[in-house]
């Protein structure tokens, strides 16, 4: 056995196929064969915490019971993404300076703005949006009907998001210091986001691949660094459903490495400075 095989906790190729299929079935996320290390690094803590000595033991337990809570923990562990406040900064700058002022002007009669963070992970993105709106557009927040809906597949992530508690490393990342001192309180080794911002975000469970619950018409839809996890037919299915909730003049914000090009030609690319968004054609 090579050193690498030993570190993998002797997961057999059949175990790997089983795990990949389980994750694909439950979340539609495709872990290709080259990402075997990801399975091992993310699932080893799940195995340990649940009293299993190896990943093989974990898989054996999973096989015994097809719908148990252990399956949820495995899917949770595999669908958690890296995130940070104001990730990639440029889309946020353009949103604040160009796209939001334009939408506010267009919606001045209805006085309603709806945002959807699809796959909100640990909540940094919806809270970044809440901070931006509260600080830069306070009158809109106070007098319009402004909704921020944040959804995620993972119950654990939704719980973390709703709690609004972050480690020092998390608040160090991407969050301008003046916003940290304004919107957070120190609580031991954690940083707690203030209640007025927490109250601005509605958290809901939603699997992008399954049946969607009712989502109102959305002006700005954040689905950043999500599509990269899906295969082409699933990407197309999600983008198709998403067209049903995004307003015709609304904006879809994808991750910097993502595009609708060659996936769904019914979106057009809108680029301002170093930021890109997509709108229905």
């Amino acid at each position: 056995m090579t050193a690498t095989e030993a570190q993998r906790g002797d997961l057999t190729p059949t175990d790997l196929v089983y795990l990949r299929e389980l994750i694909r079935e439950r979340s539609a996320i495709v872990i290709d064969e080259s990402k075997g290390y990801l399975l091992e690094s993310r699932l080893a803590p799940v195995a340990r915490r649940n009293g299993h000595n190896s990943l093989t033991e974990l898989v054996a337990r999973l096989r015994l019971d097809h719908t148990g809570p252990l399956h949820d923990l495995v899917v949770d562990a595999m669908t958690t993404n890296e995130t940070s406040f104001f990730r990639d900064i440029h889309p946020w700058t353009v949103l604040e300076q160009t796209w939001l002022p334009e939408l506010i002007q267009k919606r001045s009669a209805q006085r309603t703005l709806t945002f959807w963070n699809a796959a909100c992970s640990s909540g940094q993105e919806p809270y970044s949006l809440a901070m931006l709106l509260r600080d830069r557009f306070p009158q809109i927040v106070d007098t319009w009907n402004v909704r921020i809906i944040a959804t995620d597949l993972s119950a654990e992530m939704l719980g973390r998001s709703a709690a609004g508690r972050y480690t020092q490393l998390e608040v160090n990342r991407g969050l301008p210091a003046p916003l940290l001192v304004k919107h957070f309180k120190r609580d031991g080794q954690y940083w707690q986001i203030n209640d007025n911002l927490r109250g601005m975000v509605e958290f809901r469970a939603l699997n992008l691949v399954g049946q969607w619950p009712f989502i109102p018409q959305v002006d700005v839809l954040f689905m950043r660094n999500v599509l990269i996890y899906f295969d082409l037919p699933t990407k197309q299915e999600i983008l198709n459903k998403l067209r049903g909730v995004l307003r015709p003049d609304g904006y879809l914000m994808l991750g910097t490495a993502e595009t609708t090009l060659n996936v769904d030609e019914r979106f057009e690319r809108v680029a301002v400075d170093r930021a890109t968004a997509y709108r229905p054609r």
Partner: peptide, 11 residues
């Protein structure tokens, strides 16, 4: 700006 130690390169 203000960054707290320990930091990572991303910070």
């Amino acid at each position: 700006e203000y960054a707290m130690k320990p930091f990572t390169a991303s910070v």
